[in-house]
């Protein structure tokens, strides 16, 4: 079946932290197609905002035909979404992108900020011993949702929660070990995680972010620099929306 574009009904919507919202959408069969690490494109109703907003999938409920999206309000589009009440309809296209390869190796999930949500479904589906390392600026969100899936280690910039500092500080302090890294978060964090993975000889997958238009690999807006020649354009630009958003760290130049 692949990708579809549907009018989804909002079944539940709540604010879970400052500027962070959790929305459950009834998307029908789209939920059966989705895998951890993929995203959906959510369209605004306001016609002045043309482009869909790419939002990562936080949880997949195949039985209910439901996706959970946890997103941060960063502009007018996400502001519009945050006003949707239960029962409202919203147009969604997905699932988009590739998702993580689930490897049979002891895992460390490393996520920062709004990179945290997609790790929840991954934590759920990844049936190996794992440690989940979550980095926050100050306020916590979703951390309790992760607890049933593995050991949770927290870092916060202000030190109010867990280790004071970043995710790598928390890994060092808690002496977290593993063989495979799954990561999503801001670019400086991904750079540090890639470096850490190389130094410790760990298989590292990272999820990239870039401004997108079509969301399906046609417009070539959301490329990232790749180490090898890419299959689409035969240059060094992989498409974040189609070839990613998840890449093995050595595939991309950060």
């Amino acid at each position: 079946m692949g990708k579809t574009r549907v009018k989804a009904k909002v079944s539940f919507h709540e604010q879970i932290a400052s500027d962070i919202y959790s929305m459950r959408l009834q998307v029908g069969a789209m939920a059966s197609e989705a895998v951890p690490g993929q995203f959906v494109a959510v369209y605004c109703k306001d016609g002045s905002r043309l482009l869909p907003r790419p939002i990562s999938i936080c949880e997949i409920n195949e039985a209910k035909g439901e996706l959970r999206l946890v997103y941060r309000v960063v502009g007018d589009g996400t502001e519009e979404f945050s006003k949707l009440h239960a029962g409202a309809l919203v147009t969604v296209m997905g699932p988009l992108g590739n998702g993580y390869d689930l490897l049979d190796k002891k895992a460390i999930l490393i996520a920062g900020g709004i990179g945290i949500p997609p790790m929840l479904e991954l934590a759920k589906q990844l049936a190996v011993p794992k440690t989940i390392v979550l980095g926050y600026r100050d306020e916590l969100f979703l951390n309790e949702d992760f607890e049933k899936y593995g050991e949770v280690v927290i870092a916060s910039e202000d030190g109010k929660h867990g280790t004071k500092g970043n995710v790598l500080d928390a890994i060092a302090e808690s002496q977290v070990t593993g063989e495979a890294i799954y990561s999503c978060g801001p670019l400086p964090m991904l750079r540090a995680v890639k470096q850490y993975g190389m130094e410790h000889d760990m298989v590292t997958q990272i999820s990239m972010e870039e401004k997108m238009a079509c969301g399906i690999g046609a417009c070539l807006s959301c490329v990232c620099e790749s180490t090898e020649v890419d299959a689409h354009s035969h240059v060094h630009n992989k498409r974040v929306c189609k070839d990613g958003p998840v890449f093995y760290a050595q595939e991309v130049t950060l």
Partner: peptide
Amino acid sequence: AWQGNPTPRIAETYGGMMNAVGLQNPG
């Protein structure tokens, strides 16, 4: 093949969008 421009290549504007993809193509 053309590499195209650096990112960000896209920006939404009121009722429109701007692109500067730079004709990335495989030749």
